[in-house]
């Protein structure tokens, strides 16, 4: 069964969206979501990331997680471009609710309103939400 999957997978390009909804620390969702994103880059798919709710905090500049003995993985989002993952969408309402703007983020992103985010989601083939 696995061989069959491998062959078919090689020739199909799907639109994958990884939806990030949780703060970077406090739970492991953000970190392990990022691990899936990095693996997905090896499959030559059309990958995008969405950040909403507390997920927008994952991209916040100036994080220092030393005091809680956690790795600060925010710089990894800057490396995504090197994996050809360039579509990062951040929900405007989520930023505003937290007193943030695009200037507070570690990477250039496309800020979209909630309606546009919804439209982007409906265009996807696969959505994984963390």
């Amino acid at each position: 069964m696995n061989d069959e999957f491998d062959e078919d997978a090689a020739s199909t390009i799907k639109r994958f969206m990884f939806v990030n909804r949780k703060a970077p620390h406090g739970t492991i969702y953000a970190l392990e979501a990022l691990e899936v994103v990095l693996i997905s880059a090896a499959f030559d798919q059309d990958v995008s990331l969405a950040f909403l709710d507390d997920g927008v905090l994952q991209l916040r500049k100036g994080q220092d997680a030393k005091a809680i003995e956690m790795k600060n993985f925010a710089p990894t989002y800057r490396a995504l471009e090197g994996y050809d993952i360039e579509k990062l969408y951040v929900e405007r309402e989520s930023l505003e609710a937290r007193g943030m703007t695009a200037d507070d983020l570690v990477v250039p992103v496309e800020v979209v309103d909630r309606a546009r985010m919804s439209a982007l989601m409906s265009e996807q083939d696969v959505i994984m939400s963390f």
Partner: peptide, 10 residues
Amino acid sequence: LGQLVEIGIE
């Protein structure tokens, strides 16, 4: 994790 992405495609 490749098995997750792969089944997402398949």
